[in-house]
Amino acid sequence: MVEVLLFAQLREDIGTDRLQVEAEEMTIHELKKQLQESYSLSQMETMMTAINEEYVMDSEVIKAGDTIAFIPPVSGG
């Protein structure tokens, strides 16, 4: 099991700020695809991802006990 933290629009779209997911041995890309299909999300490609508070690429493999955070793009002005 891994914990997935959701922020901003993702939290609103899914209706919670965290999920428990069976995602061990998946890549971040595979997890994004799974969440996109399960929750009809369209913006997963633009999300930054961190595992255990370190930014990672979509090719990173998830391990049991990891905490994954999906962070939306930040705009400022």
Rank of each mutant, 00 (worst) to 15 (best):
M1P: 00
M1L: 15
M1S: 09
V2P: 04
V2Y: 00
V2R: 02
E3T: 14
E3M: 06
E3K: 14
V4A: 02
L5G: 00
L6W: 11
F7E: 04
F7K: 02
F7H: 06
A8S: 15
A8Q: 03
L10T: 07
E12Y: 01
E12D: 15
E12S: 13
E12M: 03
E12P: 02
E12W: 00
D13H: 01
I14D: 11
I14A: 04
G15N: 05
D17V: 11
D17S: 13
D17W: 08
D17Y: 11
R18L: 13
L19K: 07
L19T: 03
L19F: 06
Q20F: 05
Q20I: 10
Q20W: 04
V21L: 12
V21K: 10
E24N: 13
E25A: 11
M26Q: 14
M26T: 03
M26N: 13
M26Y: 12
M26K: 15
H29Y: 07
E30A: 12
L31I: 09
K32A: 02
K33Y: 09
Q34G: 00
Q34H: 13
L35M: 15
L35G: 04
S38C: 02
S38N: 11
Y39N: 00
Y39A: 01
Y39H: 05
Y39C: 01
S40R: 02
S40E: 15
S40Q: 13
S40P: 00
L41Q: 04
L41T: 05
S42I: 14
S42F: 08
S42W: 02
Q43A: 14
E45H: 07
T46N: 09
M47I: 01
M47S: 04
M47C: 11
A50C: 14
A50Y: 10
I51A: 06
N52Q: 14
N52R: 11
E53A: 12
E54S: 10
E54R: 06
E54Y: 08
Y55T: 12
V56D: 08
M57L: 14
M57Y: 08
M57R: 12
D58I: 10
S59H: 06
S59Y: 11
S59M: 02
S59E: 14
S59I: 09
E60M: 07
V61C: 09
I62T: 11
I62S: 09
K63S: 12
G65S: 09
T67W: 03
T67K: 09
I68N: 07
I68E: 09
A69Q: 06
I71D: 03
P72V: 12
P72N: 12
P73R: 11
P73I: 11
P73T: 07
P73S: 12
V74S: 12
V74K: 15
V74A: 15
V74N: 15
S75Y: 00
S75P: 00
S75E: 05
S75L: 02
G76C: 07
G76Q: 05
G77P: 00
G77W: 04
G77D: 05
G77Y: 01
G77N: 02
G77Q: 01
